[in-house]
Nucleic acid binder design. Structure first.
Length: 558
RNA sequence: GCGCUCAUAGCUCAGUUGGAUAGAGUGACGGACUACGAAUCCGUAGGUCGCAGGUUCGAAUCCUGCUGGGCGCACCA
């Protein structure tokens, strides 16, 4: 609908240019939006205001010209007003809204889909946890964000690749091996020392048991045993991570291993490529990249004087590989503690001629866990953290995902585990799910009464005239453009807010029937009942589609 | 110290990328089931959008400075 207003405006403007009512100028950056106040109509545009400087006329004058020449070929407008300093307010004919509703019902599961992505290839890399321990809450937030974003992007015709970068090279894995080895040693000798900065979690003990059962560690040298523990530990952790994520409702297309970068020689090749750019130099026996000339605060080492590559080196290589794979856009979801890393990554890409808009890094802020009114401090190294698995077991996947997407990724999240655990109305996810279940219940009731939606909606929808009914339709009409917006700003939390709002409109509408039976959906008047059932069906469709994009179930009963 | 980021109702947060009179949830108080599901709804109360300037028709939103939180500043990953 918004698009229709927009096209009316552009054709009108063109018309005014052609007949000389307005001076031919480039199209200004105007907006068409839904006003905050109902007396401002269904849509409002600031076009006259944005046109004023180039036309050198007063906005209200321009507004009058536009309104006088409005090209409403489909006759969708009921009322057009000029208001305030130069806004134009549009009110849409009720029949048009009824058409919108009919379209939702016709499209069903596809309502909300769009062509906006145009088949563009997008890579989303998320979670990417080190396989040195179970996934924790922070990973859960990144996972929920990434997965939902991917679902929405795919729905809007982006060709999405979901990728998990496995940080399986370097110190962390070595440390994992040492940790497991020490725990194994401690099984026979309580006093065997445990490395200071090693992983303390109980899962290490479990791994030590499993691995020592499978392998005769006594038959190996210490170094061999540690290497073996590292390798098996890593594999087992990765399996667990995959299982956790699958149970959390998501799958990945690519598991990209850092060690593969080394073994395949890609890393060396990438470094060679960068050398050609002239951004590398040697100093103090190390190789540096001049990121300071590319937006970073200082130059960075990519190969240490001991001959080893830094983590940054493999990360550059990894991103160059992403680029070569032909994605028109890459999105990374990182913990906010890595934000200092963004500029250097973009700098390194720039050195290779890759524009900085190619890579978008979404930073997710800390998740604080509350239980019993107290904050639970988490620390992976100290082995004290709540795992994603524990969270899923305690609060359920639906509630966890909903809470993770209940705030902008950019703001810290307080996860109140007691609240999310409650299977009652305090828990926000139930509000939306209940709306869906309630509608399903109405349909069960309708079936009992022998009412079914077999006829053409168009024959009865004109019976929908209540303000609450129109508000519902208008809200649902926004759904497709909401999804398009999310694809541009990468903020899936808007969907949770939207669904809560839609559920709220429905609950309000439903409650009209509490006191006034004529306002019920099944109300005694057969064509009106049908019309309202069609409306309810559309709401169910939108709630279902929205919840599915969030990876949350839309239950028929609760 | 430098950089990034955030600051909106008692609390937790939205705010359609600059629009008209700033909104939800929660908490507090008061109401609505003989009923399509009360896991719901209605009402009341609650604000100098951290502070001060600037940009313009118009600022919670943009620019500058300040204050206060978070995070980052390794030849670690």
């Amino acid at each position: 609908m918004k698009n229709k207003i927009d096209s009316i405006l552009t054709t009108t403007l063109q018309h005014c240019f052609n007949n000389g009512k307005l001076n031919q100028t480039p199209l200004p950056d105007y907006t068409v939006e839904i006003p905050n106040h109902s007396d401002h109509g269904h849509f409002a545009t600031n076009l006259p205001l944005t046109l004023a400087p180039s036309q050198k006329r007063r906005p209200t004058e321009i507004a009058q010209i536009i309104v006088d020449h409005l090209m409403d070929s489909e006759d969708i407008l009921l009322k057009v007003d000029i208001a305030g300093p130069g806004f134009i307010n549009f009110t849409i004919r009720t029949e048009q809204w009824h058409k919108c509703l009919a379209q939702i019902i016709a499209l069903k599961d596809d309502y909300g889909r769009s062509r906006q992505g145009n088949g563009e290839k997008v890579l989303v890399e998320y979670v990417s946890a080190n396989p040195t321990g179970p996934l924790h809450l922070g990973h859960g937030r990144g996972a929920a964000l990434g997965d939902t974003l991917c679902r929405i992007l795919a729905y809007c015709d982006y060709r999405v690749t979901r990728e998990f970068y496995i940080n399986d090279a370097g110190r962390q894995i070595q440390l994992l091996g040492e940790s497991i080895y020490s725990r194994w040693k401690q099984m026979s000798n309580r006093n065997h020392p445990f490395p200071e900065n090693a992983y303390h979690g109980d899962y290490i003990v479990e791994l030590a048991k499993e691995i020592s059962n499978q392998t005769d560690l006594d038959g190996l040298t210490q170094d061999q045993a540690i290497a073996h523990c590292a390798k098996l530990g890593k594999e087992k952790m990765l399996q667990e991570i995959k299982r956790d994520l699958a149970d959390f409702g998501m799958t990945f297309d690519v598991w990209y291993s850092e060690t593969d970068l080394f073994s395949s020689g890609l890393l060396d090749k990438s470094i060679e490529t960068i050398k050609g750019t002239g951004y590398l130099y040697e100093k103090d026996g190390a190789i540096w990249i001049k990121t300071s000339e590319l937006g970073d605060d200082k130059d960075r080492v990519i190969k240490k004087s001991d001959g080893e590559f830094t983590y940054f080196a493999s990360d550059i290589s990894y991103h160059l590989e992403k680029w070569k794979r032909g994605f028109s856009k890459a999105i990374n979801i990182w913990g906010a503690d890595h934000h200092g890393y963004v500029q250097r990554m973009k700098g390194a890409l720039k050195a290779n001629g890759i524009g900085e808009e190619w890579l978008t890094v979404l930073l997710i802020q800390l998740v604080k866990l509350w239980k019993g009114g107290q904050e639970l401090k988490m620390s992976k190294r100290a082995g004290q953290f709540v795992t994603l698995r524990e969270l899923m077991d305690e609060v359920g996947v639906d509630a966890a995902r909903f809470v993770f997407l209940s705030k902008n990724h950019d703001s810290p999240l307080d996860f109140d585990i007691d609240l999310a655990k409650k299977h009652d109305s305090d828990n926000p996810v139930y509000y939306v799910q209940y709306a869906h279940a309630r509608i399903c219940s109405i349909f069960r009731k309708a079936e009992e009464e022998g009412i079914s939606l077999t006829q053409d909606p168009k024959t009865v929808l004109e019976r929908l005239i209540l303000n609450e009914e129109m508000a519902l339709i208008r809200s649902m009409a926004e759904f497709p453009s909401l999804l398009e917006t999310i694809c541009i700003v990468f903020e899936p939390h808007r969907l949770t807010y939207y669904l809560t709002e839609l559920a709220s409109l429905f609950h309000k509408y439903f409650n009209l029937g509490m006191k006034v039976p004529e306002n019920r959906i099944i109300c005694g008047d057969s064509s009106l009942s049908l019309a309202r059932l069609f409306l309810a069906d559309a709401i169910r469709i939108v709630l279902y589609n929205g919840l599915t994009l969030l990876g949350i179930h839309a239950p028929e009963r609760m």
